[in-house]
Write a protein that binds this DNA or RNA. Structure first.
Length: 267
DNA sequence: GCTAAATGTTGAT
DNA sequence: TCAACCTTTAGCT
């Protein structure tokens, strides 16, 4: 449904908390692939729901954590009891407290110990959506690296939760060329980019989608933001830049499509 | 109604 | 560098 960058996962965590927090859960794997894990959690209460970057954690008794990573096309579907008859590759179905949640197509769905969870968390960079966002930790890495900032922003060890859309949009909003080495970004500029990421990603959690354009740069200035108006450069190859009308360009960078305005982001 | 591409990461070659 | 994961949507016809 929604784009699985960090904002979508944090939204998922809140929805799990709201629907299931404290409830005794039925946990099944109609597809069968997660059957052994589901058996460990079935009949237990859901004690916590947290997101870290693009990773979701659901806490159960005996220090068991359900770890879910949606990858490129995993999805959660929520609804009220009764759930529809399971169809196709339904990896996981949760049910409790009058609600259900179906998980399809995730890259990861597994039961973890607290140690496995903390090993992962130690590997991740700061998440703009966590309670005390530590942008300076990201800058510590950025400012020491000759790698391009476009590449660094996609590295979850630098910033956790940013994906291809936020990468393209944050660079545009700060007039930064994706090809600049990380260490050419000065501390003040990074502070501005980081606080903007916090704002944009929080808005993403609230809206359930990514909107990065300012009203004056949309074709419709008022009312609901249309899909075609939501971004500055992401997936706008060949279209005129909303600010300077130059053609938006695209190029593959580390296996992902990168979008930028060659004039607004000249350096 | 069909096809291609997509927001991400891991593990094999 | 590439396949796998196997869903959803945009853009055709």
């Amino acid at each position: 449904m929604s784009v699985p960058e960090g904002h979508a996962i944090h939204r998922n965590a809140r929805e799990h908390q709201a629907r299931f927090g404290g409830a005794v859960m039925s946990v099944t794997s109609p597809q069968g692939r997660f059957a052994p894990g589901a058996a460990l959690l079935d009949g237990r209460p859901l004690l916590a729901a947290e997101a870290y970057g693009k990773h979701l954690f659901l806490g159960f008794p005996e220090d068991r954590w359900l770890h879910v990573h949606l990858g490129l096309y995993g999805t959660w579907r929520f609804g009220e009891t009764p759930p529809p008859a399971p169809r196709g590759a339904l990896r996981l179905r949760l049910a409790g407290n009058g609600s259900w949640a179906d998980l399809r197509g995730p890259t990861a769905c597994e039961v973890w110990s607290p140690v496995e969870k903390s090993v992962l968390e130690a590997r991740l960079g700061p998440d703009p959506l966590r309670r005390r966002p530590r942008g300076e930790d990201a800058w510590a890495r950025l400012s020491r690296s000759r790698t391009s900032v476009g590449q660094l922003l996609m590295d979850q060890q630098v910033v956790a939760g940013v994906g291809n859309v936020y990468r393209a949009e944050i660079l545009f909003r700060h007039n930064v060329s994706p090809f600049r080495p990380g260490r050419s970004i000065d501390e003040t500029q990074w502070a501005g980019m980081w606080s903007d990421l916090v704002t944009l990603m929080r808005a993403g959690v609230r809206l359930g989608r990514i909107v990065t354009t300012r009203p004056e740069h949309r074709s419709r200035k008022r009312g609901t933001v249309q899909r075609a108006d939501a971004h500055y450069v992401y997936r706008r190859t060949g279209l005129p830049c909303r600010v300077c009308a130059s053609e938006v360009r695209t190029e593959v960078m580390v296996g992902r499509n990168l979008f930028w305005c060659p004039v607004c982001q000249a350096v």
